[in-house]
């Protein structure tokens, strides 16, 4: 049998993970539903938006809770490795590191997103229906409607912002998954701190690059791919990297970060010691 990937072993691993965690997952979904209902009721009672269950409330609730719950869940996935007894149990299960990683991605990325979105809509549809049945709603300027989370405009200047935002979420979530293998304790907090430190270092590097290495001017129609060198306003010239480099760069930023972090997680998992 293939020692890197076997569908039979992978299926066994997925079923084993479900058997080990079904109670915890079931209770977590119920707790999330309870919190969501409480929050929506709170927004309706306090008039958080102009209309009960308005678009803004639904949008903010979906994306904020997606980030909060998704990153927390990812940071907990490999928490067993922080405990000697659980770590031994996890590492000695006869399956490859690749199968174990793939199982973690199936649960923390794919199934999490499906279950989260389903649970959100289940409550959202219900709460919008309740909001519409409230006395006086028909007199309001806008009628509460269920939002399409894949089509809402988050950044007004970018029509693809929702898709980019979701891709950004998967990258952030992958960083938390890596953090759960890397840090034996407090992985959620430590990953947040590392994220801020990495972000700050990146910002400083960009600032240094922009202020001290590049000539006088500024980025023009495309961040990092097109630079306008200021001379006198008339003889300014434009420095552009070839279009394909810009496209590759954009592609890597959008789709490359999460898989890169998964690869790092794989090697970290393979080298894990207990």
């Amino acid at each position: 049998m293939n020692q890197f990937f076997s569908l039979k072993r992978f299926t066994l691993l997925v079923l084993k993970h479900w058997a080990d965690n079904k109670k915890r997952y079931g209770l977590s979904v119920l707790a999330f539903i309870g919190l969501l209902i409480t929050w929506f009721v709170f927004t309706m009672l306090t008039g958080f938006d102009n209309i009960p269950m308005g678009k803004a409330v639904q949008q903010i609730t979906f994306f904020l809770s997606l980030f909060a719950v998704g990153t927390f869940y990812a940071s907990q996935y490999f928490r067993d490795l922080g405990s000697r007894s659980k770590g031994i149990n996890f590492l000695l299960v006869p399956a490859s590191a690749f199968e174990k990683l793939l199982c973690s991605l199936l649960y923390s990325v794919v199934l999490f997103f499906i279950v989260f979105t389903t649970a959100f809509y289940l409550i959202d549809v219900l709460m919008v229906a309740i909001a519409n049945s409230l006395p006086g709603t028909e007199k309001l300027a806008g009628k509460p409607n269920v939002i399409n989370v894949f089509k809402v405009i988050i950044l007004r200047f970018n029509s693809d912002s929702t898709i980019n935002f979701l891709l950004f979420f998967f990258s952030v979530q992958s960083a938390f998954l890596l953090g759960s293998v890397y840090f034996e304790k407090y992985s959620f907090i430590k990953t947040i701190i590392c994220g801020f430190v990495a972000g700050f270092i990146l910002f400083c590097m960009m600032y240094f690059f922009y202020e001290h290495l590049l000539p006088n001017g500024g980025f023009h129609k495309g961040f990092l791919t097109s630079f306008r060198v200021h001379v006198d306003g008339v003889n300014d010239h434009l420095v552009q990297v070839p279009r394909w480099i810009g496209e590759v760069f954009r592609f890597l930023i959008m789709y490359g970060i999460a898989p890169f972090l998964w690869i790092v997680t794989y090697f970290r998992l393979k080298e894990k010691q207990v």
Binding site: Q3, A19, D20, K23, S85, L91, P94, A95, S96
Partner: peptide, 20 residues
């Protein structure tokens, strides 16, 4: 830690974990 190796080795550690 190849699966074929792990299938043939079982460890009963002093501190162990069993699922609920």
């Amino acid at each position: 830690r190849l699966p074929v190796f792990l299938e043939d080795v079982f460890m009963v550690p002093e501190e162990f974990y069993l699922p609920d």
